[in-house]
Amino acid sequence: MLVHICCSVDSHFFLEKLQRDFPEEKLTGFFYDPNIHPYSEYRLRYLDVKRSCKKLGIPLLEGEYDYENWMEAVRGLEREPEKGKRCEVCFDKRFEVSAQKALELGEKKMTTTLLVSPLKSQEQLKRVGDEFYRKNGVEFIAVDYRSGGGTQDQAKVTKEEQLYRQDYCGCIYGLTMQRESQDKLMDEMFSPISNTVLPASIEERLSLYETRMRLEDEGRKYRIQKHKFLNYRQFTCKLTVDKSIPVAAYALSYSILQRKKAEGRIETEIEGIHYFNREEIRFISLQKFNLLADRDYLSVKELIYSPLAYEDEVALRIKITKSIYDLTPIIVVDEIPQGKLSLVLDAKIYEDTKDKIIEI
């Protein structure tokens, strides 16, 4: 039986149940999910499914990540709600490719781990699956592992196996509407031009779960624990002199400007720190930055494209402000500018959680 797999949280519990209920069937996993966005999230989910299937002794195949074709298939359905027409088209595409893969492998039966997801309609999935049975001759096995306490058992398995528990279905449209309804920043879509790995980002989680795989291969014991912290994302940092002359500027992490814009002049300098006469803003030259950070950047532009590691930048901020709680805007410039300055700084601080590996 070919089993279309969407994620480890759904698949691990689902596959265990299939192994018990269909002992005569040789199960083959098929990870085909071109709807998942961004690509780093796709790689993270695939990595965890790969680990899960390895533990269960089930071979896993990876389908093509044909995201552009998926986008074209759901065009015009972007604002459809979860379990609406967009999901049905998404199922159609994934079922069609999965059915073709089943035929290619000589399988006569297929099913999908989407059946166990509380975010999906089992009736909708069965309807789509039965239609493909009529068209392709691959029988769709519609099992119900959600009822009778199945969802609670699934949550228990997820915790015991320390599976990656994502908090959105997968596609950009579902994510957008979910974050809008939560009035929450969609930080999954942040991708700095510098490729900096941001705290609690998908890239950071991907690195963590790769480390987890290495620890398991080495037979080392660990736990994945969550902890709360204040996260930070920066949207814009622009500096101009006399309202028209742009100046290359870099704002250190956790720089916050309440009204997002401030105008004024630099009026004081103490030990290489230049103080603005508004909003407690501080400026440092690139030379001062290099001295404090023990670096040799040639320009602020170079710093923008290749900044310090996030932890090093936070440590530098503490060195400058002498406080771990300081949110003062600290702006790095090539040379300290004169004249009337206009700073636009749009950034956000928010409560968040992140995973951490603790060896035991």
Rank of each mutant, 00 (worst) to 15 (best):
residue 164 Y to V: 03
residue 214 R to S: 07
residue 159 K to S: 08
residue 219 G to E: 05
residue 249 A to R: 05
residue 195 N to K: 12
residue 174 G to Y: 01
residue 240 T to Q: 12
residue 210 E to D: 06
residue 230 L to K: 15
residue 186 M to L: 13
residue 215 L to W: 08
residue 180 E to G: 00
residue 218 E to A: 06
residue 211 T to G: 01
residue 185 L to M: 15
residue 222 Y to E: 02
residue 184 K to D: 02
residue 161 E to P: 07
residue 248 A to E: 15
residue 179 R to A: 09
residue 180 E to T: 05
residue 195 N to T: 03
residue 145 Y to K: 01
residue 150 G to Y: 04
residue 166 Q to K: 02
residue 140 F to L: 02
residue 214 R to V: 04
residue 237 C to G: 10
residue 222 Y to T: 04
residue 140 F to P: 01
residue 182 Q to R: 14
residue 237 C to K: 10
residue 142 A to R: 09
residue 226 K to E: 15
residue 161 E to Q: 14
residue 202 I to R: 03
residue 231 N to S: 15
residue 222 Y to H: 04
residue 228 K to G: 14
residue 154 Q to L: 12
residue 206 L to I: 06
residue 249 A to V: 15
residue 220 R to V: 03
residue 174 G to D: 09
residue 245 I to D: 13
residue 236 T to W: 02
residue 216 E to C: 00
residue 231 N to R: 13
residue 223 R to N: 11
residue 177 M to I: 06
residue 180 E to S: 01
residue 205 R to F: 06
residue 226 K to L: 12
residue 213 M to V: 07
residue 141 I to R: 03
residue 239 L to G: 11
residue 240 T to C: 12
residue 158 T to L: 03
residue 181 S to L: 10
residue 185 L to I: 15
residue 180 E to M: 12
residue 208 L to M: 05
residue 208 L to E: 03
residue 157 V to M: 07
residue 141 I to K: 06
residue 199 P to D: 08
residue 148 G to E: 02
residue 174 G to W: 02
residue 203 E to S: 05
residue 203 E to N: 09
residue 196 T to I: 08
residue 162 Q to I: 06
residue 212 R to D: 03
residue 233 R to H: 13
residue 243 K to M: 14
residue 183 D to P: 05
residue 187 D to I: 11
residue 202 I to M: 07
residue 190 F to R: 11
residue 166 Q to V: 02
residue 183 D to Q: 15
residue 149 G to K: 08
residue 232 Y to C: 09
residue 223 R to P: 04
residue 148 G to W: 05
residue 188 E to T: 06
residue 145 Y to M: 01
residue 224 I to W: 04
residue 165 R to P: 04
residue 167 D to W: 00
residue 157 V to Y: 07
residue 149 G to T: 08
residue 198 L to P: 13
residue 247 V to K: 06
residue 162 Q to S: 10
residue 215 L to F: 07
residue 226 K to M: 14
residue 182 Q to L: 14
residue 181 S to F: 07
residue 218 E to H: 04
residue 232 Y to V: 04
residue 201 S to F: 06
residue 144 D to F: 08
residue 171 C to P: 11
residue 252 L to R: 02
residue 227 H to D: 09
residue 246 P to Y: 06
residue 189 M to N: 12
residue 191 S to M: 14
residue 205 R to E: 02
residue 178 Q to P: 00
residue 229 F to Q: 07
residue 197 V to H: 08
residue 146 R to E: 01
residue 190 F to V: 11
residue 160 E to I: 11
residue 220 R to W: 03
